[in-house]
């Protein structure tokens, strides 16, 4: 059974594009990274999944059940962390968590306590006094307290300090190990590389790529940084093979990307009068640039 399935999901706000023909299939137990720049349609997709907004066309199923306008029982097995956690300002964190827990039959106070402890959350203060990070922690805890089968997180790490972010990643990996499906939206691609098994790329409202994280286009690409003796620019040795660009702020340094067998790469570099060389794997940002540049060719259905 699929944890999330959308077919031809389209949303227009009047004439303004939200998302166009998004078809996704996220299997149970997947940790799915939903990646795209700001304004690409990540939040619109998530809000449509949760029926907070209604699609112009297309359909959504969560955990094998169609999402309808009225909400209801379906959400008993879904946890959601919004991009910006907003709640009742006059209530304390504990009161909000108690209220959230009141919607579910199972009340596991030990689990709740352990979540608060792991994320370093003080539930005794009124919501209005919480920083952005603490609000995000509250959002995460209230999304997890009923042990959902599907967890939908919209940029969950924004506002979290690095240690809490690491703890969240550990928590998500543990949950994934227990079979929980995690749908994780972010524009920080390193996070996808760290915890996700599959990735979907959305751009200008369209899903342009879906694959295993390791199968993103440009995965064989290498980034080469060189400095030639005397700081000269690489010339004919690389012509037709790579296009070196000066590295900003580092006089005499040049950088280029190549997707070539290692032997050929080393042979080419050996012809240069090198003073410095660095060969690095591409960051996931670089990989996504490659996806964007290819206009999203490849599989667009999970």
């Amino acid at each position: 059974m699929l944890a999330i399935e959308t077919v031809g999901l389209t949303k227009y706000y009047g004439k303004v594009r939200g998302i166009i023909d998004v078809s996704l299939a996220v299997g149970e137990g997947d940790v799915f990274g939903f990646v795209g720049p700001n304004g690409a349609g990540k939040t619109t997709t998530i809000r449509t999944l949760l029926s907070l907004i209604h699609p112009t066309s297309g359909r959504v199923s969560l955990l094998g059940r169609p999402v309808t306008r009225g909400g209801g029982e379906l959400y008993r097995q879904v946890g959601y962390v919004p991009a910006e956690v907003r709640c009742y300002p006059e209530m304390t964190g504990q009161e909000i968590l108690d209220y959230a827990a009141s919607f579910y039959q199972r009340g596991d106070r030990e689990w709740l306590r352990s979540l608060a402890e792991r994320l370093g959350f003080d539930a005794s203060r009124p919501f209005r006094t919480y920083s952005h990070g603490n609000r995000k922690k509250l959002g995460i805890i209230q999304a997890l307290l009923h042990r959902p089968r599907l967890l939908i997180l919209d940029e969950p790490t924004s506002g979290l300090d690095p240690l809490v972010r690491l703890e969240l990643f550990r928590l998500l990996q543990e949950l994934s190990g227990q079979g929980v499906t995690v749908f994780f939206s972010t524009h920080v691609l390193e996070e996808v590389e760290r915890i996700c098994t599959r990735v979907g790329v959305i751009r200008e409202g369209r899903l342009i790529h879906v694959s295993q994280v390791g199968e993103l286009p440009g995965r064989n690409m290498r980034i080469i940084t060189v400095r030639l003796a005397g700081g000269e620019a690489p010339g004919g040795e690389l012509s037709g093979w790579a296009r070196p660009q000066p590295v900003e702020g580092k006089a005499g340094y040049y950088q280029f990307n190549v997707s070539a067998p290692v032997n050929e790469l080393l042979a080419r570099l050996a012809r240069l009068d090198l003073e410095y060389v660095k060969i690095t794997d591409p960051s996931i940002e670089d990989l996504l640039l490659a996806v964007y540049e290819r206009g999203g060719e490849g599989d667009v259905r999970g």
Binding site: L50, R69, G70, G71, Y75, Y80, C87, P89, I96, A100
Partner: peptide, 17 residues
């Protein structure tokens, strides 16, 4: 206005309830 919709309307209750 307060954004409590994202909290309340994603809980296992219907909008009618």
């Amino acid at each position: 206005d307060l954004g409590t919709a994202e909290f309340l309307y994603t809980k296992p209750v219907t909008r009618r309830q």
